[in-house]
């Protein structure tokens, strides 16, 4: 069972890391993202804000840290069980 927990934890670490990279690898999580809108008449750019959640290292870092801890602990316990 500990081996399975460990595998799940490491898979989640990879998933959280991938989400962090996909969201722009920012330090801080964002709840709004800029969308650039071009005005055709003048060629100027303005910014609209799109609501959502983009993962930053401030949230992703601790989550990955805990998951790595769980994964390592799982490996240790599975080896002990052997």
């Amino acid at each position: 069972m500990w081996k399975a927990i460990s595998i799940i934890a490491f898979v989640l670490v990879v998933a959280v890391g991938a989400k962090w990279i996909a969201d722009g690898a920012q330090v801080f999580s964002k709840d709004k993202q800029q969308v650039v809108v071009v005005d055709e008449m003048f060629g100027t750019e303005s910014t609209e804000w799109e609501d959502g959640f983009w993962l930053g290292l401030d949230v992703g870092g601790p989550v990955m840290g805990v998951l790595i801890g769980v994964g390592v602990f799982g490996l240790y316990r599975s080896r002990q069980a052997k």
Partner: peptide
């Protein structure tokens, strides 16, 4: 006529902040 807006950028070692 068009969206009046000021965009601002702060560049610092820890992070770059883009705002409006």
């Amino acid at each position: 006529v068009g969206k009046s807006q000021i965009k601002f950028v702060s560049e610092a070692p820890m992070e770059n902040i883009h705002g409006t």
